[in-house]
């Protein structure tokens, strides 16, 4: 099994290790932040950078996200959902807030007063290729997921962007997730067979 696949498999469910790390964090052990960062930051950063589309901004948001996780960990309740979902929401809201702040700054400040050299210009990432099973979806399904999940748009914003009724857009999201689920089930079955053969 290659390394990427093993990483994917490891995170199909929340591991005992994650549960222990979260508990340690709740007890004020900041050393638990490092392994938790290793486990979750790549996935979270993948979302942040796709919303912010700018590396420096994305790094700031990533740091702020994990500081918030550290500060607010007591409010995380596993009965309300996965740790990843909780962290994702924090990251998404921080990314959108940072974007709004930056846009406001551009609108209100006369940037011409600053002598901005070409090298100082923030590095913009306009599009990051999406990987995995999302690429097997039909184009409208892929777009729907990309808008709401990777770009941080709400259902209302995204349906307008796509130019389809809200009800239709909701169906797109549901159908896309259904298709993805089928693919993930297939790979899960494949992994189980592989494990039995190698075992």
């Amino acid at each position: 099994m290659d390394e990427q696949l093993s990483h994917f498999v490891k995170h199909l469910t929340m591991t005992e290790e994650d549960i222990t790390l979260i508990e340690r964090l709740k007890n004020g052990d900041n050393a638990a932040l490092a392994p938790l960062y290793d486990n979750y930051a790549p996935a979270i950063y993948g979302i942040i950078i796709r919303i912010c589309k700018e590396e420096h901004l994305a790094k700031t948001v990533l740091q702020e996200t994990f500081i918030t996780i550290w500060k607010k960990i007591d409010s995380y309740d596993s009965k309300k959902g996965r740790f990843y979902t909780w962290a994702y929401r924090i990251a998404k809201h921080k990314s959108l807030n940072q974007l709004r702040k930056t846009e406001k700054l551009i609108r209100t400040e006369d940037l011409s007063v600053y002598d901005i050299k070409e090298g100082d210009q923030p590095k913009r990432i306009d599009s990051l290729k999406l990987n995995g099973y999302i690429n097997l979806l039909e184009e409208h399904h892929k777009k729907a997921i990309e808008y709401v999940y990777f770009n941080g748009l709400t259902h209302r914003e995204a349906h307008e962007e796509m130019g389809v009724p809200l009800g239709t857009f909701k169906s797109y999201v549901r159908q896309a997730l259904h298709q993805l689920r089928k693919s993930y089930l297939k790979i899960a079955s494949y992994i189980m067979v592989l494990m039995q053969v190698s075992g």
């Binding site: 995170h11 490092a34 960062y37 979302i47 740091q63 994990f66 990843y84 990987n131 689920r181």
Partner: peptide
């Protein structure tokens, strides 16, 4: 199920997280 679907989607699209942010976090906290 929905949470799991979305998390898998993110795990297929990970970006290497900056090591300096981890260092900063440990120092700050």
């Amino acid at each position: 199920i929905i949470e799991s679907d979305f998390e898998k989607l993110a795990r297929e699209n990970t970006i290497e997280a900056p090591v300096e942010i981890k260092r900063n976090l440990l120092m700050i906290t």
